[in-house]
C-alpha cells in the first residue's frame, strides 16, 4: 500500500514540476510586449551604439581639413598585429626648416582586432575609435584604408 501511495505521488509530483515549467513559458507566451528581438536592418535609424563602442579606427578631421597626427609611429609600434602602417614625408616649412609629416596613415581593417591599444598610445589623440560596424565589403582590398584625408594638414596647436 505504501509503495502504491509513493508510486502515485511520484507521478503527481512529476506532473506538477512539468506544469510549473509550462507556467514559465506560458507566462512569456501571453506577454508579447516582453519580446526582446531587435529588427536590425529596419531599426538602423534609431540604432545607437554606446559611445565607447569600438567599430573601427578613424582619424577625425576638423572643418579646415586638419588632423592631429604627427606621424610619430607610436600607434604602429603598439599595434599587435601590424594593422597600421605610417608613411611619412619630408616637407619644407614656410620658415625654411625641413620637417617630417604624415604622408599616409594606412589602416588594415581586415587585420585589426579592435584592441584599442593604438588609440590609448596615441600621444596627440589623433586617432579614435569609430562607431561604424557595418564593414562588409565585396573585396578585401577595400578594407585597407588611408585614414588621413588627401590634402589634410597637421593642426596648428599640436605639440610634437
Amino acid at each position: 500500500m505504501k509503495a502504491l501511495i509513493q508510486y502515485i505521488s511520484t507521478i503527481l509530483q512529476g506532473l506538477l514540476t512539468l506544469v510549473k515549467g509550462m507556467a514559465v513559458t506560458g507566462h512569456y507566451f501571453f506577454r508579447p510586449k516582453l519580446i526582446t528581438t531587435q529588427q536590425y536592418p529596419e531599426n538602423r535609424q534609431t540604432l545607437k551604439m554606446f559611445d565607447r563602442f569600438r567599430g573601427e579606427v578613424i582619424m577625425p578631421h576638423d572643418e579646415n581639413n586638419h588632423h592631429k597626427c604627427t606621424g610619430c609611429g607610436i600607434c604602429e609600434m603598439n599595434c599587435p598585429n601590424g594593422s597600421i602602417e605610417i608613411i611619412t614625408k619630408m616637407i619644407e616649412t614656410p620658415e625654411g626648416k625641413k620637417k617630417k609629416v604624415i604622408d599616409k596613415h594606412i589602416y588594415h581593417l581586415g587585420m585589426c582586432t579592435l584592441c584599442n591599444l593604438c588609440v590609448k598610445a596615441c600621444p596627440t589623440g589623433a586617432i579614435v575609435m569609430g562607431q561604424k560596424f557595418e564593414h562588409a565589403v565585396w573585396d578585401r582590398t577595400q578594407l585597407t584604408k588611408v585614414l588621413n584625408q588627401p590634402g589634410s594638414e597637421l593642426m596648428k596647436d599640436v605639440k610634437e
Binding site: T25, Y28, F29, P32, I35, T36, Q39
Partner: peptide
C-alpha cells in the same frame, strides 16, 4: 510563430 512567442522572439517577419 508559437515557439518564437514562447522564447520571446518575433519569429519569421
Amino acid at each position: 510563430k508559437v515557439c518564437a512567442l514562447f522564447q520571446q522572439r518575433l519569429g519569421p517577419m
